[in-house]
Simulated scan of single mutants.
Amino acid sequence: MDKKEVTIYVDGACSGNPGIGGWAAIVLFQNYRKDVYGREENTTNNKMELTAVINGLKALKFSCNINLYTDSLYVKYGITKWINTWKMNGWKTSNKKSVKNMTLWKELDNVASQHEINWKWVKAHDGDKYNEEADSLAKKAIIDA
């Protein structure tokens, strides 16, 4: 069976860093759109960026081919470059320190392994329709208690 082609846009936001955070994912498949978003207390922007990706991927019911757009180079480089070295080094950085947000990175690694993902970086606040909408949803999640 051919895998479905899906597009996901993600974003995270934080009011203060750390502070109250919001995350959002927009999942697009053919003419279907699903928005998933939420908030957390006392978190960081990077945690919200990771949480957005994890929840966007968890919204899928089966293995897919995904074009995933993020404006976070931390997420893109972390999952495409740094993670393999972290795993080989027992989740330690090159400075022998524990990887920050290790639990989220491990969860992302697990859910991402179920799909074929083309990780794409998009410049934030640069007019990309769905990136702007994901940003708005993440910010809305912060305010909507």
Rank of each mutant, 00 (worst) to 15 (best):
T103S: 12
A25H: 09
N131E: 04
I142H: 13
A112C: 05
N118T: 10
N89W: 04
D126G: 08
K47L: 01
A52C: 05
N131H: 10
R33Y: 03
K87I: 15
T44Y: 05
M102S: 14
N131K: 08
W105V: 00
K120N: 14
V53G: 00
H125K: 03
I83S: 13
K87L: 07
W91P: 15
V53S: 10
W121I: 05
T70P: 07
W82M: 03
K96V: 02
W105I: 00
T70Q: 09
D126H: 12
V10G: 06
I54E: 06
T44N: 05
N101I: 01
D71P: 01
G19N: 02
A52P: 09
G127L: 03
D109N: 15
K120W: 01
K106M: 14
T80C: 07
C14N: 12
W23F: 07
E132K: 08
V75P: 01
A13C: 06
S63P: 04
N101D: 03
W121G: 03
N118V: 04
G78Y: 09
A141N: 03
L104W: 14
E116N: 15
V10D: 03
D128N: 12
K100Q: 09
M102Y: 13
I26F: 06
N131F: 08
C14L: 11
E49K: 10
G56T: 11
W121T: 05
K92C: 08
S98G: 11
D126L: 01
V27N: 06
V99Q: 11
L68F: 15
K140L: 07
V27I: 15
E107Q: 15
W91S: 14
S63G: 11
L137D: 02
E116Q: 14
Y9H: 13
I117F: 11
N17S: 06
L28N: 03
K47H: 09
N101Y: 02
L108T: 04
G16M: 01
W91F: 13
A141C: 02
Q114G: 04
K97D: 06
K129C: 01
S72K: 10
L104H: 15
L60T: 05
W105S: 01
Y37Q: 03
F62L: 06
N65I: 00
V53Y: 12
F29N: 08
D135H: 15
E49T: 05
S15C: 05
G22M: 03
L68T: 14
T51W: 08
D71C: 03
K58R: 14
V99G: 10
W23V: 00
N42K: 09
T85F: 08
N110C: 10
W105A: 02
I117G: 01
A141Q: 04
F62E: 14
W82R: 03
N67C: 06
G12Y: 13
N110A: 11
S113A: 13
M48D: 12
Y37D: 00
V99C: 08
K123I: 02
N89L: 07
I26C: 06
Y37E: 04
A124R: 03
K139R: 15
I142S: 12
Y37W: 05
Y77K: 10
F29T: 02
Y69I: 05
K106G: 08
Y74Q: 05
N95P: 04
N89M: 10
S94C: 04
R39K: 14
L137I: 00
